[in-house]
Structure formats: C-alpha cells, structure tokens
Write a protein that binds this DNA or RNA. Sequence first.
DNA 1: TTCTGTATGTCAAAATCCTGACATGGAAGA
DNA 2: TCTTCCATGTCAGGATTTTGACATACAGAA
Lengths: 147, 147
Amino acid sequence: MDPPHLAEDVTEHVGYRLKRAAAALRNAMDKALREHGLTVPQYACLELLDQQPGLSNAELARGTFVTRQSMNVVLRGLQDAALITRPAAADHGRALPAHLTPEGRSRLDAARSAVYAIERDMVAAIPQRRLAAILTDLDRMAAALGG
Amino acid sequence: MDPPHLAEDVTEHVGYRLKRAAAALRNAMDKALREHGLTVPQYACLELLDQQPGLSNAELARGTFVTRQSMNVVLRGLQDAALITRPAAADHGRALPAHLTPEGRSRLDAARSAVYAIERDMVAAIPQRRLAAILTDLDRMAAALGG
DNA sequence: TTCTGTATGTCAAAATCCTGACATGGAAGA
DNA sequence: TCTTCCATGTCAGGATTTTGACATACAGAA
C-alpha cells in the first residue's frame, strides 16, 4: 500500500485535510465572532495581548501568522474601537507596546466563551487520548515547513 | 490537570496549532508554486480537475473551501492562461464543466512535484504510525464544525 | 400546469491581505 | 567612532477574498 502522501486521491493528503479543518475552524469562528463585532485576526490579537501585555505590532503579527502590514491595520481598527491602546512614541526602540483597555478586556471575555465553545466541539470530536499527540504533531509539521 | 482546551496559554489550544500548521503549509506552498507561476487556489483547482474532470465552478469552490465568487475569478485566471477550458453555455443546467488543457496538465505535473516535496517533508516530521489517525481526526474536527 | 425551493453563475462593492519599498532606531563589529 | 546589519513601523499599490445581491435553470409538490 502506498504511503498516504502518495495517495491517488488528493483529498486523502494531509495537506488537504489540514486545510479543510482549518477552513472549518475559521468559518465557525467567523460566524461566532461576528455577533461580538470582532474578526478572527482581531480576536486573536486581543487574546495574545491579554496573556502577553505590551506586545508590539511585529510580535503580534508573528503570533497570528500574518504580515506586519496586515497586523498594522488590525491594530488601527482595534485602536479606533478603543479596545487597545498604543503609545504615540517609543521610549526605547521603535516597537510600540500595545495594551488592552477595560472595554477591550470585557469584549474579549464575551467573545472568548463563544470561541471556547467551538474549541470544545472540535476537541470532543476526537479521542481524548490522542489530543496531546495531535498537538505535538501539528507543531512538528509546522516546524518542518519553517513555520 | 486541565484539559488542553482550557489551557491558560492560547498557543496550547488545538485551534491555534491548527492555524499555525495551516499557515506554514500555505506559506511553503505559496513560495514553491510561485516558481511555477501558480497560486495556491489555482493549483488546488487544477489538482481537483485532474482527478475529477468536468467539475463545475460551485463544486470546485466547495472542494477548495472558498466561495463561488472567489473560485469564479480563479477560473477566469486559469482560462485566460489557457490552462483550463469551459463551455460558453451549459447544455443541461447552469453548471459549466471545466476541463484541463494539455498545457494545464503539464503545468500541473511540474508544480505537483514541488508540492509533493512539501507534503513529504510535512509527513516525515511525524511518526508514521500516527498518520492515519491524524487524517481521521482532522476529518472529525472539520465535520464537528460543519466543514 | 403552476408554484416553491434549491442550486448555479455572475456582478458590484467592500474588506482583507500581501508584496515592495522606505525611513528610523538599536546592536555588533571593524 | 563609524559602519554594517537587523528589526520595527509605516506608506502605497495591487491582488485576493468575502458579503450581498440578482437572474437563470432544474426538481418536486400542490
């Protein structure tokens, strides 16, 4: 039997399944977050800032797997919505540390429950004993591709 | 110990790892396909058409996890590049069956080797005995999210 | 037959994202 | 010190994708 990465049917490839699962997650999050007035990148940004206050634009971009330019517009949107704050000038380098506002934190808390419900559904669909392995394998695949 | 979907660190969540792996794959494919003058959606479209000739715009959209509108512009691009053909009018319904041109097939063959090399690297990074389980688990996660 | 529902293709507009480019600030080495 | 290199923030332009909408074509029920 051929190894799966040489399967005749493309839909049997790991890459295809990965894309499918990621697309399904993105879609579910999109719909859930729309009710909270947030986009997926915006939510990801708020989540990262909640756990690591003071992250810069470039650091947030790397953490959410987008370019600095894309994160820049996301940050502007969040700033205009008064969900985060950024100093006008940097005191040390050029990096401008971002922080959640109280309103940003409450919006995040509200949206988080919706997102976590999705995560629960996703995790519940697979055998619990395999979950840790999946996490490490996803990580290894990303690392192998220079992620 | 808390279940992973309630981990304090967001980067430990399945969704985050999924996004990371998918982003790494997308990035690697983007760079590899650029040398062949193809985008990721274009390649995915050609690959599907190679295995299932005559697929319609809507079917291709579902198969590549984008909207009909997005696939429509992709098809136009492929048509302008003479890599696929579509009849001007449908004989039965409204669906226009697409087919690869000889040039489309050769372009696909050339690009495929580059993409398969990426897939090989990705698969090689994980234990072989877990590969089948990963495929089914990714499928279950997508299905649980309505993918 | 007629009506309703579903699926398809397409247009228009907006949002999102990326590539390319430039200037600034700091670190490391000659 | 000065020079080189790297990281960061930002602007401009274009490419990609999505949402919303509309018309068409078929299937099935009333």
